[in-house]
Amino acid sequence: MQKTAYSRPLPVPDSESTPFWDGMREGKLMLQRCASSGEHLFPPVTFCPGSLEIPEWTETSGKGEIFSWIVVRHPVPRDLYADEVPYVVAIVALDEGCRMTGNLVDVAPEDVRAGMKVEIVYNHVTPEITLPAFRPTGS
């Protein structure tokens, strides 16, 4: 039986982001790193802010901790998210030092805490697109 088509906004990969989305699809968190400063970068850029070098792509651990989060209870647009609420969007401070965004899964919204240890989960929503999500590591 054919699955219902995915009906929520999808990313449009571009020249800066294609390695990130390719990595997601393959189950790898690929991030940019500035060779001179050593800083990891998210979202992707063409020039490293400050050094203005061309960043290199590198596979990262996918581990970090909750920096901030929201619990969406009122769906907007309603027709797209009425069946999804409540859901959690988080900013995660990755162990590599930069922050990134993702949904938070496998945890009740009221149990989320700042500093909670999380790891990446790959949310395969279409054959082309895998969205980043995070779940508590339990430690």
């Binding site: 929520r8 571009d14 982001s17 979202p43 929201i70 969406v72 907007v76 969007v89 929503v125």
Partner: peptide
């Protein structure tokens, strides 16, 4: 912030697909 765009370009590609779309959702994070 109505968020009707089903194709998320630019920096929006890292936010809207997560259901992070409206201004209250943005500010609540802060």
């Amino acid at each position: 912030g109505g968020g009707r765009d089903m194709s998320a370009y630019g920096v929006t590609q890292y936010t809207a697909p997560l259901g992070w779309i409206t201004y209250p959702q943005a500010m609540a994070m802060w």
